[in-house]
C-alpha cells in the first residue's frame, strides 16, 4: 500500500482555498487597494493591511520562477516519485506558490508559462501545474 502524501494544515484563513480546490477552482485573496493577490491566505493583505480583501477565482496561469529536484526522501508519500521537482511559480494575479510541475526536469526553465491542474488525493485536492499547452 502506498503511503499518503502530507495533507495541508487547514486553518480559518486557508479553508476557502482548499474547499475551492476540491471543486477544481483556484481561489486567492485579492487586495482591495492594490489589486494584488497573495499566498498563503492571511487575515490581512500584506500589501495594504488596512484595506479590505475578497476571494477571487484565478486564471490558473502563471510562470516558473525557479525550481529544485528532490533526490533525498523527506516524505514516505513522495518516495515513489523521487526524483521529483518542486517549482516556484508566480501566478498572473501576483501570488507566488511552491508546487509541482508535471514535466521532466529538462523542460523546466525560468519564465516558462504554466497552468493549473488538480490532483485529487481522496480527502484533499491539491493544485499542481503543467507546462502551458502540454497534455500532462
Amino acid at each position: 500500500m502506498t503511503t499518503a502524501k502530507p495533507n495541508p494544515i487547514v486553518d480559518v484563513w486557508n479553508k476557502p482555498f482548499w474547499q475551492a480546490c476540491a471543486e477544481g477552482r483556484l481561489l486567492l485573496q485579492r487586495c482591495g487597494e492594490t489589486g494584488r493577490c497573495w499566498y498563503p491566505p492571511a487575515p490581512v493583505s500584506p500589501y495594504a493591511p488596512k484595506a479590505s480583501w475578497e476571494w477571487v477565482e484565478c486564471s490558473g496561469r502563471g510562470e516558473i520562477l525557479s525550481w529544485v529536484v528532490f533526490h533525498q526522501k523527506y516524505y514516505e508519500g513522495f518516495a515513489d516519485e523521487l526524483p521529483y521537482n518542486v517549482t516556484m511559480v508566480r501566478l498572473e494575479e501576483g501570488a507566488q506558490l511552491l508546487t509541482n510541475v508535471l514535466a521532466d526536469k529538462a523542460e523546466l526553465a525560468v519564465g516558462k508559462p504554466i497552468e493549473v491542474t488538480f490532483d485529487a488525493r481522496g480527502d484533499v485536492t491539491v493544485p499542481l501545474f503543467r507546462l502551458a499547452g502540454s497534455a500532462a
Binding site: 502530507p6 495533507n7 529544485v68 533525498q72 521529483y84 518542486v86 516556484m88 499542481l128
Partner: peptide, 25 residues
C-alpha cells in the same frame, strides 16, 4: 526536513531545498 508545513503537500521541505531554490535562480 519532513513533518508538517505550508508546502508539505508538494513534498517541499528542508532549509537545504530553500537554498537550492535560491541558487537555481
Amino acid at each position: 526536513g519532513g513533518g508538517e508545513g505550508e508546502w508539505a503537500p508538494w513534498g517541499m521541505s528542508s532549509p537545504g531545498a530553500s537554498h537550492a531554490m535560491q541558487f537555481q535562480a
